[in-house]
Design a protein around this nucleic acid. Structure first.
Lengths: 120, 120
DNA sequence: AGAATGCTTAAGCGACTACTTGACTATCGA
DNA sequence: TCGATAGTCAAGTAGTCGCTTAAGCATTCT
């Protein structure tokens, strides 16, 4: 999952309407009008949201007769989840290091954190 | 964490620059110019990204002398993570139900999924 | 004091977003 | 076959986003 893809996934999730569509789809496949029914907007608007969800791979759909059936693609959801998890665990690890620093011999953790000792 | 907040959190994460700022901050606090150094854009641009991150609560900062020091707020990160996790597990549960449906007595799972048996 | 550093404000600009309405096509059911 | 249903395409629009430059204001260093 390349960087720019994550842009699109998070962008897709950054909208209440689209998240509610995802919330519906994780419970099982649905047609476009199933998705549209609880939403207070025109069908074309729903279609556009759907396109955003498809463009980032979060949702797939196929047409049978005149009905388009949509379902989520959980791996993409997982990719976004993983990015966040990685950050959170990284933060927890650096908290631990801080704990070590505060209780241990000062020399042991000498040139770790600051990363920029001025540019001069 | 209300709905509209999640809008802003995901929106904040939907940008490579801001994600890279988060990736830096999970390793420890940093000043505005620390954050700006690896980025190929003007300082005001970085400030604007920072404001987006602060507006959704993902980052906090405080000023000491002329230096503003930023740090992440892991609970907000966690809230976003949790929304995704909830969807993924919900999807996994409905997969299980489908498995049951395919292997069990048809009557047991009778009026579950379709949710809309037409509107007529 | 004067210069350098670190951040902040404001204005402007091109690109993108989330809708809308209106018209049109392709099934499906009676 | 005719009408209702399900989806699609196109164009327009108000508002937001990501960036820029230019100017300004504290703090710190010399």
């Amino acid at each position: 999952m390349p960087k720019y893809e994550l842009d699109r996934v998070f962008q897709a999730l950054a909208d209440t309407t689209r998240r509610s569509m995802v919330e519906r789809l994780v419970r099982g496949p649905a047609s476009v009008s199933d998705l549209a029914r609880p939403l207070d907007m025109s069908l074309p608007a729903v279609m556009q949201h759907l396109q955003v969800l498809e463009a980032c791979g979060l949702v797939r759909s196929g047409k049978t007769g005149r009905v388009r059936t949509c379902h989520i693609e959980p791996e993409v959801l997982r990719a976004a989840e993983e990015w966040i998890t990685r950050q959170r665990t990284s933060w927890e690890r650096s908290l631990d290091r801080l704990g070590d620093y505060l209780t241990e011999d000062p020399q042991a953790t000498a040139d770790q954190e600051p990363e920029n000792r001025s540019t001069s």
